[in-house]
Design a protein around this nucleic acid. Structure first.
Length: 288
DNA sequence: ACCTAAACCTGGGCGC
DNA sequence: TGCGCCCAGGTTTAGG
């Protein structure tokens, strides 16, 4: 779902369309997902959009920022004066606003930013721009793979760090690479596909991998994240970009969601097991 | 300190 | 038809 490639795709669109707009009004229909003072956001100008792992930060001219996590089903959709009558997205909220539109930002020049979220797992927090670390999610995030712009002050995951992280991990390697405190940005889709690409059994413990296997996995993670970015993210659930458009990676996934289908490499059936409480797809013949 | 599993929430798919 | 059940997964939290 929204993992690094999806959130970066969203960020690119938001940066393109939001920067320069002023926020004139906020309507909060579901208070539970909005934290902080709305008054610290209104009348401010949007200056930039940053991404940290799967987290987004919209920076404002008044020293405050909107820190946002869309979790599984959150969407941020931009409409301007000429597109404001278009449906929000094919998947959620055909109406304007839709049943799942929980926050509406009215911008200047007739533009609008909608926050939709079917499952309401996501959050929007108003925070001082220089105090992002007051949010544990940002404070505790591990280094992220260098496949898109890594923000100032954030560590980049190079191979040496990656190798050290795996060497300490006494849990299945899939759990380790998905742990945002250890590595930022990888979720279930790209974890499954990266492990398949690297031909590593997701159940193995990180500390048991050889240096050569770790290198294969490091390279595979970069490759699958870049592939996700190239296709504009995966939209098999509710992900859409800043204009409400689907990504394309769901048509290029290697093993994720393919239980019972033939392995793209050897033709044997893809298995599905649970690891760390999450569905895990792999080829029992190719991944050892 | 480290690890596991449940909780959060709701649409969609399945069996009956 | 439609009801009940289970499943999906990013993060947090509670418990071992």
């Amino acid at each position: 779902m929204p993992e690094l490639p999806e959130v970066e795709t969203l960020r690119l669109g938001l940066e393109k369309y939001l920067v320069g707009h002023k926020i004139e009004k906020i309507e909060i229909k579901v208070p539970n997902l909005f934290h902080g003072e709305p008054k610290n956001v209104t009348h401010a100008k949007i200056e930039g959009v940053r991404r940290f792992g799967k987290g987004l930060v919209i920076d404002l001219s008044n020293g405050h920022s909107l820190a946002i996590h869309v979790k599984l089903t959150g969407q941020l959709i931009f409409r301007d004066a000429s597109t404001k009558n278009e449906p929000l997205s094919k998947k959620v909220g055909e109406d304007l606003p839709g049943k799942f539109t929980h926050v509406i930002f009215t911008l200047d020049k007739g533009a609008i930013l909608y926050y939709n979220d079917i499952r309401r797992f996501g959050w929007i927090k108003v925070v001082a721009t220089d105090d992002l670390n007051s949010i544990p999610f940002f404070k505790d995030m591990g280094p992220e793979p260098p496949v898109a712009k890594v923000q100032k002050g954030r560590a980049v995951l190079d191979f040496k760090k990656f190798s050290e992280i795996l060497s300490r991990a006494n849990v299945p390697v899939k759990v380790t690479i998905m742990d945002q405190k250890r590595i930022g940005g990888i979720g279930n889709i790209y974890a499954n596909d990266s492990l398949f690409m690297a031909r590593i059994d997701p159940r193995r413990k990180g500390k048991d991998l050889s240096e050569a296997e770790k290198k294969r996995l490091y390279d595979a993670i970069e490759k699958s994240l870049r592939k996700g970015l190239k296709y504009g993210g995966a939209s098999e659930l509710n992900f859409v970009d800043a204009l409400g458009q689907d990504g394309g990676y769901q048509n290029h996934m290697l093993v994720y969601g393919k239980k019972g289908e033939p392995c793209p490499n050897c033709g044997k059936k893809i298995l599905r097991i649970m690891i760390g409480g999450r569905g895990t797809f792999f080829c029992p013949a190719c991944q050892s």
